[in-house]
């Protein structure tokens, strides 16, 4: 494999609140390779968004306690604010979850896109920026782009706003695009269109993409490789085929179980029993053990944090003490969970 665009090592982010320290991201490591789409999946609160946003300095309340984030050879965590600003929106761009609140309500759409261009090219004239903004809107499939550029966000539908967000993100041809739940807030019918736009944009820009989502369907459709996160930890990572066909972490398996499957008699979802832990009092040992069907009260799970280690081959990693048992027992375990739920 080539050099990664982004290489995260041992990133730890905490929030200090009145109720205690929130361990939002705990020693997270993963790589993103050029041109690929990396899916990061997990429940809300698993730290999947905080991880990437803290790299870019977008989580002001979060304290980065340790770690390294090599982007094109430079550690983002050590960059002074000025340098980091030059990377944000130029080298690394983001598409956020909620297009309804992510655009500034008091500025015209075209101006907001033009602003992204001018932020990284101060020499660009107003007129040129505007022309380019219209081209970008056209590229992401906003009809009548010249007219729409003069409108305010409240005059756009949710899907159109998300297109505008994507136009803004790709304005400076970033080498890494981060899409944080880009379709979650949209109607199902619009979701597919936005995915198509995202895919086209990615092709056009040849950018690596981190797709953050809780939706395994989206992962299956879009991702090349997958990182599964739980309670601030990476619990499993592999290519997309492996994740779906040979998961080696009970949590990943649980996520599969809660995925509706076409052609199965029972259409209802099989949830993972229990609830995600409070990130203030993370359970000792493996954070997943209270909900884990495989753990069954084993002492090791309650006392020792499992390391993210290779399963079979270098690129499939799982953080489970008993990952090898999953090969034989996955069907049995799924039934077991069903029984509890």
């Amino acid at each position: 494999m080539p050099e990664p665009v982004l290489s995260l090592r041992d990133l730890t982010v905490e929030f200090h609140t009145d109720d205690g320290i929130v361990h939002a991201v705990d020693h997270v490591s993963y790589d993103v390779y050029p041109g690929e789409t990396l899916g990061v999946v997990g429940e809300s609160g698993s730290g999947k968004s905080v991880t990437v946003m803290s790299l870019l300095g977008l989580v002001p309340q979060g304290r980065i306690m340790s770690g390294q984030a090599l982007f094109k050879g430079r550690d983002l965590l050590k960059l002074p604010d000025k340098e980091l600003r030059r990377i944000r929106g130029k080298e690394v761009a983001m598409v956020f979850q909620d297009p309804m609140t992510s655009l500034n309500p008091v500025f015209k759409i075209g101006d907001q896109i033009a602003e992204a261009l001018q932020a990284h090219d101060p020499g660009l004239s107003e007129d040129d920026a505007r022309t380019r903004a219209i081209e970008l809107l056209d590229l992401v499939g906003v009809p009548q782009a010249p007219r729409r550029a003069e409108q305010y966000p409240h005059e756009f539908s949710g899907g159109m706003r998300q297109r505008a967000m994507i136009a803004m993100a790709i304005a400076n041809q970033p080498s890494l695009l981060i899409a944080d739940e880009p379709t979650t807030a949209l109607d199902v019918t619009i979701q597919a269109q936005i995915l198509e736009v995202l895919r086209a944009a990615q092709r056009e820009m040849k950018a690596a993409t981190i797709l953050i989502t809780h939706d395994l369907g989206l992962i299956a459709e879009m991702a090349d490789r997958v990182v599964v996160m739980y309670a601030g930890h990476v619990v499993e990572t592999a290519d997309v085929g492996t994740i779906f066909h040979a998961p080696r972490h009970p949590y990943t398996l649980g996520l599969m179980g809660s995925l509706p499957q076409v052609g199965r008699d029972d259409e209802w979802l099989r949830p993972i029993p229990g609830q995600p832990p409070s990130l203030i009092n993370v359970p000792p040992g493996c954070p997943f053990h209270p909900r884990c069907a495989l753990s069954e009260g084993r002492i090791e799970c309650r006392t020792r944090l499992p390391e993210l280690a290779p399963v079979d081959g270098e690129y499939h990693l799982s953080a489970c003490h008993f990952k090898h048992e999953l090969r034989e027992r996955s069907e049995e375990l799924l039934r077991h969970m069903e029984g509890i739920a």
């Binding site: 609140t17 929130v22 809300s44 609160g45 730290g47 905080v50 977008l58 944080d180 739940e181 809780h214």
Partner: peptide, 8 residues
């Protein structure tokens, strides 16, 4: 919902 959801 644990503190800090997906949207931070």
């Amino acid at each position: 919902q644990a503190p800090l959801g997906a949207a931070g």
